[in-house]
Amino acid sequence: MEMLDLAFMQRALLAAVLVGITAPAVGIYLVQRRQALMGDGIGHVAMTGVGLGFLLNSSPVWMATIVAVVGSVAMELIRAYGKTRGDLALALLFYGGMAGGVLLINLSPTGSNANLSSYLFGSLSTVSSEDITAIAILAAFVVLVTVGLRRQLFAVSQDEEFARVTGLPVRALNLLIAVTAAVTVTVAMRVVGLLLVSALMVVPVAAAQQLSKSFRTTFVLAVATGITVTLAGTATSYYQDVPPGATIVLYAIGVFVLLTLLATPLAKRRARATEAEADAGTDGCGAPLPATRRPTDDVKV
């Protein structure tokens, strides 16, 4: 394991683990709300932040965080208050963010499209120790929110109207999910790249769903999948000189396919077990029919 001796690989692997934890942890709530592509939109918006960071000569990670948070809050407000043209407003935001990023980075003296591509597709060698500090702080925030408030976020994502009637601060929680998702995008940006961040938020959750029946299991399986594929992808990209982001995403899809294939025989076995149970109990076809309808009824319709 010579790669562990290299400082940049240590940083890359640490970043990979943090991304593997945080991306599915937020992604599960987005999938639950059927907003699986929200991460993709935030990724586009974050590009403007990266460009701004280069232009102002400040840290692109922090600048991307700020812009992504502002963008995701705007998206959430559009979702909550916009009525008919919400999707158009989101499209404007997404493409505006992407165009803004490309423009700003070309305006800046230090930036170039080559620079931008390390943010778009992820890169191991460029993860600085400064980046690691930022990533660790942001990841801690994400884990605190997604695990600490899981009951509340679950309820809001499951049934927003019901959650409001329980007296939960639904608007605040929705904004918190949006902000957390934005933070996650910037955490994952250095490793998987902005264009593939969303995949790491969604694919492990989709893979975990193939086997699980409960939210808790889905959460744990998704995070485990996330860690596995980010570590494997990072290691592969060290040995094979392939881009880490793309490798990680392809591994995640591989896990999805594997679990889907595994799920079919498992579901069959479960169905057999349920059937056996139903035969033993009264839940089968022996339930009495309601006696109110009779063929001899002489009421004319």
């Binding site: 999938v31 709300r33 009951r151 509340q152 994502s157 029946k213 409960s214 808790r216």
Partner: peptide, 28 residues
């Protein structure tokens, strides 16, 4: 609420869904 389903985009058990009703008693 008027719903035809209690499910969402992620699997959840009956117990997990029913537990969210308890949030009005124990918010945090």
């Amino acid at each position: 609420p008027q719903r035809t389903t209690a499910a969402s985009g992620v699997p959840a058990t009956i117990r997990e869904v029913v537990s969210s009703g308890r949030l009005s008693r124990r918010r945090f």
